[in-house]
């Protein structure tokens, strides 16, 4: 009994002594900043930054490989904190959200089959792609809703998911999971969007979907800033060029292009106007009237609030009436 206690204790003491010496000898200095950075990060380990979890991203930040803007779920707060801590300048952070590039609800998209398998888009794709006739459409079985870690995606009764901009962190999970690739990340501020991903020819699109892009090219023609291009029977809006005037959406015969900024407030010209007439020429709706070198007036009945004139005015005389604009999240 006594020998057992003594020998076991003795062995334990020897091991403890040896290990305590070894821990001093093999001591590794860990960068103390690492802990602070991990504290700032949201600890979601979502992988949106491209690193394996938040601690990997923290190491990447310290080594200068990663940028604070890489943390999409953290949003502006985390990014600015990181930048402050690391002494970096942050450029403009463009908040992105997942956007559905399909408007084919149950009523608007033609069905050609009935799918009765596992209620999952990826499963439906394996056996022919759900019931919709369109091969490019949202399948509608809510895989994106299931994978979203932030509950930002909810399937609506009309068969399409809705993305809540305030909850979406642009973590990319739904984009990866979507088997039809109809979810893409786009800047949240660009609210004029093409809700279609179909490269089918116009005739077929007209047959199978009420809101599909036929590639007619009207949007390309009416766009005042050449931001819309029709390529492979599909209109594409370049977010860099688009000024969100909404003219393409207003002219789209299929209502494929949606304008979530509606209704827009009409603009108002202040008395700094020097009467250069540029705004009157720019206005696509002839809503601005006035003689040269005289104060111009906006007809609020005609003005759609496209704000093309605002940017063109040399003396910043045109202002948007009413600061708040109603953002229709779901259209």
């Amino acid at each position: 009994m006594v020998t057992a206690v003594i020998s076991l204790t003795g062995l334990g003491l020897v091991a403890a002594f040896g290990l305590s010496i070894a821990s001093k000898k093999f001591h590794v200095d860990v960068d103390p900043r690492l802990e602070t950075i991990e504290g700032i990060l949201p600890s979601l380990n979502c992988g949106a930054c491209g690193y394996a979890g938040c601690s990997g991203f923290a190491v990447g930040l310290l080594e200068g490989e990663a940028q604070p803007t890489g943390c999409a779920p953290g949003g502006e707060v985390v990014i600015s904190q990181l930048a402050e801590f690391l002494g970096l300048e942050v450029g403009d952070v463009v908040k992105q959200i997942a956007v559905l590039k399909c408007g084919g609800t149950i009523e608007k998209a033609a069905m050609e089959a009935r799918y009765e398998g596992v209620y999952d888009c990826r499963a439906a794709i394996l056996v022919g792609g759900g019931g919709k006739a369109c091969r490019y459409s949202c399948v509608g079985y809510g895989t994106c809703e299931a994978v979203c870690p932030f509950d930002a995606i909810v399937m609506r009764p009309d068969g399409l998911p809705i993305v809540y901009a305030d909850k979406c962190t642009a973590c990319n999970k739904c984009v990866v999971a979507c088997p039809r690739d109809v979810l893409v990340l786009e800047p949240v501020s660009h609210e004029v969007r093409v809700r279609c991903y179909s490269s089918d020819a116009g005739g077929r699109v007209r047959k199978i979907c009420q809101v599909g892009c036929t590639g007619c090219g009207i949007c390309e023609k009416v766009c005042p800033v050449e931001a819309v291009k029709v390529d492979d029977n599909l209109a594409l809006i370049s977010p860099d060029k688009c000024v969100e005037c909404g003219i393409c959406a207003a002219n789209c015969p299929q209502n494929t292009i949606t304008d979530d900024m509606l209704p827009r407030a009409p603009v108002y010209i202040t008395d700094t106007c020097n009467g250069c007439t540029i705004c009157a020429k720019v206005c696509p709706y002839d809503a601005i009237e006035g003689q040269a070198k005289e104060l111009h007036v906006v007809d609020p009945g005609r003005c759609t609030g496209c704000r093309l004139c605002v940017e063109r005015c040399n003396v910043s005389a045109i202002v948007v009436t009413g600061e708040e604009r109603t953002v229709a999240v779901a259209k």
Binding site: G18, L19, A22, S23, F26, V28
Partner: peptide, 8 residues
């Protein structure tokens, strides 16, 4: 011991 050594 090995863990400490490898880490170092």
């Amino acid at each position: 011991l090995v863990e400490m050594f490898v880490r170092k």
